[in-house]
Amino acid sequence: MADRDDTAAAGDLGPVTTLATPIRLDFEFTPGVAQSRFLRGLERGRFIGQRCPKCGMVYVPSRGSCPTDGVPTTEDVELANVGTVTTYCVVNVPFAGQSIEIPYICAQVLLDGANISFMGLIQEIPADQIRMGMRVEAVWVDPDRLTPSLASVRYFRPNGEPDADYESFKEYL
């Protein structure tokens, strides 16, 4: 290549289409007062929600405010370990960071006593047998492994109760 100047050589290499810039940022998150209650509950193997003083609805987890009234939720409410699958989907796609064997069931679970469902993993049932209205219970990690984190809940599983009537949860779809 001694007979070419540097400019020509660079031109022959074609355009640069990618420039990798690794970015790593570390953050210290603050869960806040209300979520701390929820997390401390998980550490004890319990679901702790909070009630809105205005509309009476029970949120779990509460982020500290009633989303519709915009006022602080301050009254703690301990919720049951059981709930109802309001709706679900079966996940057949593997993606980064997810280690669960596919297919698996991802469901909206409405805990008894709560007015909001949250997303949970359903196990101990073949994926094609999940139903809207199925009654499920939380399966927790061993007591010595409980932490203030949702990792304390391993998954939900059918608890054998008859399915909930559609009318009882259709407002939560």
């Binding site: 210290e28 603050t30 869960p31 806040g32 007062v33 209300a34 979520q35 982020r63 500290g64 405010s65 915009g70 006022v71 602080p72």
Partner: peptide, 26 residues
């Protein structure tokens, strides 16, 4: 550093005050 409150909890009292001082609501 406010390591006690999340963003919603930081905002709520300020929103309540900005309405409250002039006697209005959302």
């Amino acid at each position: 550093r406010d390591d006690e409150h999340n963003e919603v909890e930081m905002l709520m009292p300020v929103v309540a005050e900005v309405f409250g001082t002039i006697g209005i609501t959302k």
